[in-house]
Design a protein around this nucleic acid. Structure first.
Length: 713
DNA sequence: CCCCCGTCAGCTGGT
DNA sequence: CTGACGGGGG
């Protein structure tokens, strides 16, 4: 009968069927929470709730897609499905509909991190500040933090201990003005402005409440203040509200995410119920046991019990390698071996802490012809030619957008440069006309404007793909790329890649339904809000991703690489207790992705900034009791195998670190650079060098015997 | 204004 | 190693 309950345990069923009042489901790793959410949606629909009255918010677009697929399978083809997406996508929809009520232009664009950086940089310059002393990235961080926390930029600066709060405030003001002039919003605005909209325009709130009758929010341990507030505003008017999360998987503290709203759930939502899902159906108990030991070291958590449903399995393996390259080769070989053992490639994943680590793994996999897909950030949409294409679309839709214009004026060059552009901006500011008005007076701009006129006239009947192609061909961009690829001749693979990337972008746009401006905007928005996976045939490829993007996924075999001090925990998170605990949760998230097998590894030397540095195994490896892991032999730098199999006091580790917990990060005072933090060391005896970071000077490599330094702790 | 080239500083994480 | 910037010649 009620098939949606089939195969669910008692805890899951309670979560699916609970009806009265707000519900928080505390769902441990692998406890089938996605399953429960999907079943809950199905239950709502069978109860007679129209799909469009249900909204499910997930942390990433990918998670939303996955959930949509799973929900879709429960309904007949073509049935209406609930809206599923991220907070940011939801915010964008709200602003498209009601933005004009709080002064947003109807066709506003969304600036991504790079666009934002460009605007901040311009704001720094406009304030006559030296970019070296006042790095735009830092101001961007402060601006974002201010928006997120609902405070002024000056307050955010003060809160993070930044001395020049007044400068930060000035840059922040210039930044906001520039966004307004360009008709743009940033990511933080997509959360902040809807919250403001609801408080300033009650009709908007009641209109939305009339539509969103049932709300589900996944990954609730990672919501920031604004997202929690948005959830609360919607939940208060809804027939049901179900939040799902796990404190132990809260890994986005650095961008404002916090398990706080989970912990205060009952206070924030009167009449709330809390359920626990405590059975892990995913990982073999050997893996879960090790993971549990590590996460148990965190102090800022509530003790909870997770019962493994799948007994047995191999304890996680730990491998030591001479350097990052050797590690990559070994992982690739092990991946290939798993595939030979008939494990499907798409059931194998390699996780790392920072994107830069992917390179070595990719190279090694390619050498062995193992297919892989790269998930996430540094990918397709970050490439110059792809960003060029997007810049064309953006500027042609919105000629007041200086960031996109600046980009398209260099590809190809049109005799209009920085000088003309800033003069136009000045004119626009002084006379109060939009930027496009001032631009139209520049002779070099006239071909672009007339192309724009023609393009706009054909736009209503064109899909995004055709529109983009028309633009890139009509403007001479593609011809310019072709020219460059011919010019440079053979050996210039990069140029040819540019052309291919642009063709792929046109193809992607072509896959979008609809015609005209609206459809093009849809495309732009989709692209700026969700990254694209990189690589070939995803069905049959090994997955490579950061630990952050691994959240919510599961694989038969998982490799966790680079388990070294400085990398995991990352050196920039390890100095505070809460930062360290977040790093530990990251390790926990990684380990609990594995169903059958987990392989942990570290290297004794790792390439950074083009040179090798000595590395120390991650403290998290020490936190797994020796009986719960298998220490395996691996090659030494000379190719000789290490002897000894356990970590504590093992010969393989004595080489780089004394047994026991690694040394604390130390501070030193340099006669010239002042106080700094030691990151790593290299060499021994008279050649011993430390690499330390000094505020204002950056990373410095210092020969210890040559410089008199004070040890501060 | 554009292009080339030498120099220098920098790597979390992601919507 | 990579990307960003500033200086100089075209």
């Amino acid at each position: 009968m009620e098939t949606y309950l089939d195969g669910l345990d008692a805890d899951q069923r309670r979560a699916v069927q609970h009806k009265s009042g707000p519900l928080l489901v505390v769902a441990g790793a692998g406890s089938g929470k996605t399953r429960a959410i999907v079943a809950r949606i199905v239950r709502l629909v069978l109860d007679g709730v129209p799909s469009r009255r249900i909204v499910g918010i997930t942390f990433t677009n990918r998670a939303a897609e996955e959930m949509r697929d799973r929900v879709a399978r429960q309904f007949p083809d073509g049935a209406d499905l609930p809206w599923l997406g991220t907070f940011h996508a939801f915010g964008a929809i709200l602003l498209r509909r009601f933005g004009s009520r709080i002064g947003l232009p109807p066709g506003f664009v969304i600036y991504d991190a790079r666009d934002q950086h460009e605007v901040v940089r311009q704001a720094v310059r406009d304030n006559n500040l030296d970019e070296k002393k006042f790095p735009p990235a830092m101001f961007a961080g402060l601006v974002e933090r201010a928006k997120r926390d609902g405070v002024t930029v000056a307050a955010a600066a003060a809160a993070s201990g930044y001395y020049f709060a007044d400068k930060a405030a000035a840059v922040g003001a210039a930044y906001d003005a520039a966004l307004a002039a360009a008709g743009a919003v940033d990511f933080a605005d997509l959360i902040r402005l809807p919250v403001r909209l609801f408080s300033e325009v009650p009709e908007a709130l009641s209109a939305v409440r009339a539509e969103v009758r049932h709300l589900l929010v996944d990954e609730f341990q990672d919501v920031d203040r604004g997202q929690a507030e948005l959830s609360r505003l919607l939940a208060e008017g809804a027939d049901s509200f179900c939040a799902v999360g796990d404190e132990d998987q809260s890994i986005y503290g650095w961008r404002g995410g916090s398990a706080g709203p989970m912990l205060s759930f009952e206070r924030d939502h009167p009449g709330a119920t809390v359920f626990h899902l405590g059975t892990n159906y995913r990982s073999k108990s050997a893996i879960l046991l090790a993971a549990g030991e590590v996460i148990g070291k965190n102090r800022l958590r509530r003790e909870k019990r997770i019962v493994p449903a799948r007994q047995g399995g191999e304890p996680p393996a730990v491998l030591v390698h001479a350097d990052g390259e050797a590690e990559a080769d070994a992982v690739a070989a092990a991946v290939a071996a798993e595939i030979r053992r008939a494990v499907s490639p798409s059931e194998i994943a390699v996780f790392y802490r920072v994107n830069a680590q992917s390179r070595a793994i990719e190279d090694a996999l390619r050498r062995l012809d193992v297919p892989y897909v790269l998930r996430g950030a540094l990918s397709f949409y970050d490439r110059a030619s792809v960003r060029d294409g997007m810049a064309y679309l953006k500027w042609f839709l919105n000629p007041d957008d200086p960031v996109s214009l600046k980009r398209l004026l260099r590809a190809p060059r049109r005799g209009v440069g920085e000088v003309a552009l800033s003069r136009a901006r000045e004119t626009a500011n002084l006379s109060g006309v939009p930027l496009s008005g001032a631009l139209a007076k520049i002779p070099g701009m006239s071909p672009l404007f007339s192309l724009r006129g023609r393009w706009l006239s054909t736009l209503p009947t064109a899909g995004p793909g055709e529109a983009l192609r028309a633009l890139l061909e009509g403007s001479g961009y593609i011809a310019w790329l072709e020219e460059r690829s011919r010019e440079k001749g053979e050996g210039q693979e990069i140029r040819r890649d540019d052309l291919e990337n642009v063709r792929e972008l046109i193809g992607l746009a072509g896959a979008f339904k609809g015609k005209g401006e609206e459809a093009v905007r849809d495309f732009l928005e989709k692209v700026s809000l969700s990254p694209k996976d990189e690589g070939g045939d995803a069905d049959n490829a090994v997955r490579l991703m950061t630990l952050h993007t691994a959240k919510g996924l599961e694989f038969d075999v998982v490799f966790l690489v680079g388990l070294e001090e400085g990398l995991l925990p990352h050196s920039r998170s390890a100095d505070s207790g809460s930062g360290l605990e977040e790093e530990r949760r990251l390790f926990y998230v990684g380990l609990t992705r594995a169903r059958e097998k987990a392989c942990l590894s570290f290297a004794r030397r790792r390439m950074l900034f083009g040179s090798h540095r000595d590395a120390i195994p991650s403290r998290f490896l020490h936190e797994i009791p020796p009986a719960l892991v298998r220490w395996e032999e691996a090659g030494s730098p000379q190719g000789k195998p290490f002897r000894g199999a356990t970590f504590a006091g093992s010969p393989s580790c004595r080489v780089t670190a004394a047994p026991g917990p690694p040394r604390k990060s130390r501070r030193v005072r340099h006669p010239l650079f002042g106080e700094g933090k030691v990151e790593t060391e290299e060499g021994e005896g008279a050649e011993r060098k430390i690499i330390a970071r000094f505020p204002g000077y950056g990373l410095k490599k210092i020969l210890v015997r040559a410089v008199r330094m004070e040890l501060l702790d």
